[in-house]
């Protein structure tokens, strides 16, 4: 069994780096101010949803361009049950996941039963996300276009049960989620299902000839990825305390989710995390620098993201991680795009 542990033992520099990073992330709330903490927090959020998306695209090879759908569904479900019925988000989360999983299963059923692949599948995911956005813009129970707001009572007392509290609490929640998902992924992609996903990604006909029920495993990938993404959505809704259909389901949101894993490296364990840690802070630095210059321009950050995406896909289509891993002295599958 070649786990991450074994990979890292073969690369002491990487192991040291990871240990330092881990320690720094653990004590970060004590060291940095609220703004910087919020930047790291959002970075971790993108690392989380990026990992969730990567399971489906990077490992199972199914391109979803509508992943904001699941962020929105998870967030809206948990927030609505919290606001209307006082339900704890830990239970609301289950509802959110169920709703997202149902949508994902619907998309999967439509697409995979009829053999819709590639571009068509991607378009179907966008279409369903947009369809849902417009639906929510007319969904009065959750505020329609006016937005849906969670009451902000205190930021001092941490109430983990109701997920109300200080930025530091949210920070530790998302840190735990991101690390937890990473560890789960390590186990997942070295499991039978992980290998089956990669087989499907590489060649569906060959996969099926080896006894893999490709329909079932693609469905599992879509539903699992959607459920995890919905979990991220619950976190985001409770952290932001507001939800707007355009910001929850909009296509620009879906694109934000997929940037980090593509830039970091599709189908790698570290790629989505590395991508998030490159992209989000750079975007923030850019906005901050322009702010300092007295320039406030909408679109600069995303223009920059677009440029990075263009450069990466042209010259490093496997992403930054495989290249970085080789420099760290990591060999083998984790260093392969």
């Amino acid at each position: 069994m070649r786990g991450v542990g074994a990979v890292l033992r073969g690369a002491p520099r990487a192991a040291t780096g990871l240990a330092v990073l881990g320690a720094a992330l653990l004590v970060a709330p004590l060291l940095v101010d609220d703004y910087l903490l919020s930047v790291i927090l959002i970075t971790l959020y993108f690392a989380f949803v990026g990992q969730a998306w990567n399971l489906m695209m990077g490992y199972a090879g199914q391109l979803s361009l509508g992943h904001a759908l699941y962020v929105g569904l998870g967030g809206y479900a948990a927030a609505a049950f919290f606001v209307h019925f006082g339900l704890t988000p830990w239970a609301g989360m289950v509802i959110g996941i169920l709703v997202a999983a149902a949508f994902a299963a619907g998309i999967g059923l439509l697409a995979f039963r009829f053999g819709i692949g590639g571009v068509y599948f991607a378009l179907l995911t966008i279409a369903v996300a947009e369809f849902t956005r417009i639906l929510f813009e007319h969904f009065e129970w959750v505020g329609a276009t006016g937005g849906f707001f969670l009451p902000v009572e205190n930021r001092e007392i941490n109430d983990l049960l109701m997920l109300r509290g200080s930025p530091a609490m949210f920070y530790y929640v998302i840190l735990a989620m991101t690390v937890g998902l990473f560890l789960a992924n390590v186990a997942l992609i070295r499991s039978r299902m992980g290998y089956y996903w990669m087989a499907i990604r590489e060649d569906q006909d060959a996969a099926q000839a080896l006894g893999i029920n490709t329909f079932r495993y693609k469905m599992m990938a879509v539903v699992l990825s959607a459920s995890l993404t919905a979990l991220g959505g619950v976190f985001l809704a409770f952290y932001n305390n507001n939800l707007f259909p355009i910001d929850a389901f909009g296509i620009h949101r879906s694109i934000e989710i997929i940037l980090a894993p593509i830039i970091g490296g599709l189908g790698t364990l570290f790629g989505p995390i590395l991508g998030a840690f490159i992209l989000t802070p750079l975007g923030e630095v850019l906005t901050w620098a322009l702010d300092q210059l007295g320039v406030q321009m909408a679109g600069v950050k995303h223009l920059f993201y677009g440029l990075v995406l263009l450069v990466i896909i042209r010259s490093l289509p496997g992403g930054v991680w495989p290249w970085f891993a080789r420099r760290l002295g990591i060999e083998g599958p984790e260093a392969r795009p």
Partner: peptide, 13 residues
């Protein structure tokens, strides 16, 4: 073959 995977992983699958 599953081009992106190792020879061993191909057979393992």
């Amino acid at each position: 073959p599953f081009y992106g995977l190792s020879v061993e992983d191909n057979v393992l699958i």
